[in-house]
Amino acid sequence: MDGKIDYRDDGLFCSGHVACGGCAEALSLRVILNTMGPDTVAVVSPSCTAVICGGHPMSSLKIPVFHTTIESAAASAAGVRRALRARGKVDTNVLCLAGDGGTYDIGIQALSSVAERNEDILYICFDNEGYMNTGGQKSSSTPRGAATGSTPDGKRTRKKNMIEIMAAHRIPYIATASPSDLNDLAAKVEKAKAMRGTRMIIVLIPCLPGWGLAEDSSVQTARLAVQSRAFPLVEITDGVHYRLQTPELCSPLADYLTSQKRYRHLDAAEMARLQADVDTDWSMLQQRAQISPA
């Protein structure tokens, strides 16, 4: 890796947006939007993304944007797709931009139905593992142990395994990505863009205030998430073929956990339990990738 970010930037994502200083979501959004290109309609549900997108004429996205309700990103996108078809615009991309609350929790009913019908939509979930725009409450994407406004002593249950849920719908493409590897993110968006049907990419976004991080540590934290295997990078095609990306450098989960305030109440035993969760998930993914590689 020479550290160079290699993607075409046509300026579709503007500076002057209102993300928190240092937030990796803006960075990821820039890569995603420019890779998708101008022939794209965005459907956005209430989330940090919706705030970052901003309002006309100060929109930070130079494409048409439809802000819908929090439970409805996938369903509204299905409506947009049908209308574009009816108008003969088959090549226009329909891009959903949603948060984890709007994806894992309140939006899963619409998302599941869209996936079942294999609607022609690329669905991006910016996963900051909680409701960060309302002050930091847990979502079903919040990992075990993490403290939030509504789980002050740490969440007791595991993070919902969204990629397996989506894989069970047998949609053409599912991937996870991290702002610590923007070339990988761009490649995955490029790949998804060339496909038809329901495609989903979950991008991990370390939340500076929500996770208790310094302003310059977003990308670094995302990298630690990948290296510690807390957030594995994976691609699933047609719901059955797995490609698991083994990180070049590995680090213990404790390094990732201790870098964040949301885990600071954990003792060694609890950290060991979380390490066991991560190890189980990783070996499951390894098995799948061995049995049914992409």
Binding site: G101, Y131, G135, Q137, G149, S150
Partner: peptide, 12 residues
């Protein structure tokens, strides 16, 4: 509860 401004602080 479910988070929403300005009621979230009751839930918290």
């Amino acid at each position: 509860g479910y988070p929403i401004t300005p009621a979230s602080s009751i839930m918290e």
